[in-house]
């Protein structure tokens, strides 16, 4: 078993933030990642679940069974399942769900740690560049977060609300800015790196 305190060959204790280097797009992992993105973008017809609020618009390309030579619709239906149109009325639990598996979401608060007072800097790298932040802690609370260097592909103004989210949450774990995920990733990693020194 590896020594948990060793320095990782990928460069430091936070190697896991940097992602796996050097897999090729043409590798099976690269092909799989691209295929999943395509399927996700196409969406699905029925939410298959709950209130139906999560239904994504299905593009024509994803319409099931658009056939070069059409697959005939199912005639035998042994297993209980939704209507052939696969669009379930809002709020109805679809019949494909096992009765013992009622979707119950349980919630428990996660206590954030107490931070040591001081000034800390941290650097985080996302899929398209990195950034450095300065974080100040006074009286155990994060009192300021400044982006001191920004080398991301897109301007840092796109994530301008994230520092205030850190202050509100008193944690690096804030929700990303929509449509600015890559910059958000770098920011959250930078703040996490800074706050790890404050633990």
């Amino acid at each position: 078993m590896a020594d948990p305190n060793r320095t990782d060959p990928r460069g430091g204790e936070q190697w896991w933030r940097k992602g796996k280097p050097g897999r090729l797009k043409s590798s099976m992992v690269g092909i799989s990642a691209a295929a999943v993105l395509g399927v996700y973008a196409a969406g699905y017809v029925s939410s298959g679940d709950g209130a139906g609020a999560t239904v994504k618009a299905a593009s024509p390309a994803s319409a099931p069974l658009a056939t070069a030579t059409a697959i005939p619709p199912a005639t035998a239906t042994a297993a209980p399942r939704g209507p052939a149109g696969r669009t379930l009325p809002g709020g109805e639990v679809p019949p494909t769900v096992a009765p013992t598996a009622t979707p119950v979401t349980a919630r428990t608060p996660v206590a954030a740690g107490t931070y040591k007072d001081g000034s800390y800097t941290g650097t985080g790298v996302g899929p398209h560049g990195g950034m450095t932040v300065a974080v100040a802690v006074e009286g155990g609370r994060i009192t300021s977060v400044d982006i001191t260097a920004c080398n991301t592909r897109w301007p840092c103004s796109r994530i301008s609300e994230l520092p205030s989210r850190v202050l509100a949450a008193q944690s690096a774990q804030v929700q990303y800015v929509t449509r600015a995920t890559d910059s958000s990733v770098a920011f959250v990693r930078a703040v996490s790196a800074a706050l790890e020194q404050a633990r």
């Binding site: 699905y44 029925s46 939410s47 298959g48 679940d49 709950g50 209130a51 609020a53 999560t54 994504k56 099931p64 199912a74 035998a76 239906t77 042994a78 297993a79 399942r81 939704g82 696969r86 679809p94 494909t96 769900v97 979707p103 979401t105």
Partner: peptide, 24 residues
């Protein structure tokens, strides 16, 4: 909650599309 529902929905979608055990 929406994301959890959507994620379960993807499992349901993949299962009903790719099942070897469901004639339909």
């Amino acid at each position: 909650d929406r994301a959890i529902n959507e994620a379960f929905g993807w499992f349901a979608e993949v299962e009903r599309t790719c099942s070897r055990f469901d004639p339909a």
